[in-house]
Amino acid sequence: MRRLLGDAGAIRRYLNGTRRPLESFIKNLLHDLAQHWAMPLGSEVIVLIWRMQWQVLVAETQGPGRS
């Protein structure tokens, strides 16, 4: 599996939930998983991942103090 390039601190923040991962990071991660498992990811997995990303974006725009 190819090593994801990126700042280790940023990746830690993605994993602990203090920073939203970039779209490119998610795409690369899904691609690497499919290669590692030698099979495509199911569409339900991909939909779930992008749905969660969308929910984060909505929460960021509708967070406390925003109208």
Rank of each mutant, 00 (worst) to 15 (best):
R19P: 01
P40K: 06
L29M: 10
A10C: 08
W54P: 01
H36E: 04
W54K: 12
T18H: 09
R2L: 03
T61N: 13
E23H: 10
S43N: 12
V45S: 04
R66K: 14
V56C: 06
A8C: 08
F25S: 01
R2K: 07
Y14G: 00
A34Q: 03
L48K: 13
M52A: 14
L22Y: 04
G65M: 02
R12L: 11
I26M: 05
M1Q: 07
G6W: 06
W54L: 12
L4F: 07
G9M: 09
R2Q: 03
S43I: 14
P21T: 00
R3Y: 07
L15M: 11
I26K: 01
L48Y: 14
L33G: 01
P40N: 05
V45I: 15
I49F: 09
H31S: 02
E44R: 14
A8R: 13
L41F: 03
L57Q: 12
V47A: 11
R13F: 01
A8Y: 07
G9D: 05
L4K: 03
R3V: 04
Q35E: 15
L5Y: 02
L41K: 10
K27F: 08
A10Q: 14
D32P: 03
G65T: 04
F25L: 02
L33N: 02
L57S: 13
V56Y: 06
R19V: 01
V47L: 13
R19F: 08
L5W: 03
E23V: 11
R20P: 00
Q55E: 10
T61L: 14
W54C: 04
L48I: 06
Q53M: 06
A34R: 00
R13I: 02
Q62P: 02
L41M: 12
F25T: 00
P64W: 10
R12A: 15
V56S: 06
M1D: 02
L48Q: 11
I46Q: 01
H31I: 02
A34F: 00
R12D: 07
W50M: 05
L4M: 11
S43H: 12
L33W: 06
L48C: 11
R3K: 10
Y14F: 11
S43V: 14
V56D: 05
G17F: 11
N28Q: 15
R19G: 01
A10E: 15
G42R: 15
R13T: 00
L22T: 05
L15Q: 15
Q53W: 08
L22D: 10
R2V: 02
Q55R: 14
T61D: 10
L48T: 13
